[in-house]
């Protein structure tokens, strides 16, 4: 099994709202200093899904990311978890690419890698929350795709995917090669071991440029974008919260009860 996992470096989604800041003039997020970027949590789960398959069937896992040199940290994190190879695709011509361009670049990178049976992505990147790139990669490569997997199994040269829907589960069977995007219901991503980190620290991570993956420059960057970001604002949803107070919990509970009585549904 040759598995490729697409991973993205993002602003920590658990960042408290107080630390989330926006440059209103340039419509950009200002990353707070002292809090490192993280691997998109869904992508960490995609790595986990790949590792589970590898644990069972053996094989090789390559993680791939588009970004600058700083994305090395998340590649090493995936390597420390147990991925075999890491790869960064980096070029200034990629700056401000939209989902379609990112999908195209990944597809070009994957074509250059050449061999793959399974490609895994996160269901969405928890920064811009699009959930588009996986589908675009599948379209460019002409392979089938199922999104939001909670379980991915390889059986007899096919892949079995159990995925979550709003109200339940569906299981699909796909021919390989295929692309699967992974959802949080997959479980928890394993933590790297000490030796995992040590081995990952000294691993070579090649960086491929736009040229090396034979980029058609009309398909990437800002000018190829099909949408334009006009404004990025921090909304305020604050309501005035009145706190119930009282001498003791009896009084507080009684007050809450009467508030609830007022607002309950009468059949």
């Amino acid at each position: 099994m040759e598995i490729i996992v697409c991973i993205k470096q993002i602003l920590d989604p658990d960042l408290p709202p107080a630390k989330f800041m926006v440059d209103k003039e340039r419509n950009k997020v200002i990353p707070p200093e002292g809090i490192p970027f993280v691997i998109n949590p869904y992508d960490a789960l995609a790595v986990e899904a790949a590792l589970k398959i590898k644990d069972e069937k053996g094989g090789k896992i390559t993680v791939i990311t588009i970004g600058d040199k700083s994305t090395e940290d998340i590649v090493r994190k995936a390597l420390a978890m147990g991925a075999d190879e890491g790869l960064i695709i980096s070029d200034t011509i990629f700056e401000e690419s939209d989902s379609f361009a990112v999908g195209y670049i990944l597809a070009q990178g994957i074509k250059k890698i050449g061999r793959y049976d399974l490609i895994l992505c996160g269901r969405q990147a928890a920064d811009w929350d699009n959930g588009v790139v996986g589908s675009v990669v599948a379209e460019y490569l002409g392979i089938p795709i199922v999104t939001r997997a909670k379980d991915v199994k390889v059986v007899n040269g096919r892949v079995n995917v159990e995925r979550v829907t709003t109200d339940g589960f569906e299981t699909f069977e796909l021919e390989l090669p295929a692309l699967i995007t992974v959802s949080s219901e997959l479980g928890q991503a394993r933590l790297p071991s000490g030796w995992g980190i040590i081995k990952a620290a000294s691993k070579e991570i090649p960086i491929w440029s736009g040229k090396e993956i034979e980029t058609d420059i009309s398909k990437v960057g800002k000018k190829a974008s099909r949408n334009q970001l006009m404004r990025l604002i921090i909304p305020s949803y604050e309501r005035r919260c009145e706190f119930i107070t009282g001498e003791d919990l009896h009084e507080i509970s009684a007050k809450l009860t009467s508030k609830l009585m007022e607002r309950r549904i009468h059949e």
Binding site: L11, P13, L15, P17, F20, V22, V29, A126, D127, W128, D129, R226, N227, Q228, L229, M230, R231, L232, I233, I234, P235
Partner: peptide, 16 residues
């Protein structure tokens, strides 16, 4: 208009 960054921001986006 769509929420981004888990709802921490709103993005206004125009189509081509």
């Amino acid at each position: 208009t769509r929420p981004v960054f888990g709802g921490k921001a709103m993005a206004e986006i125009t189509s081509l």
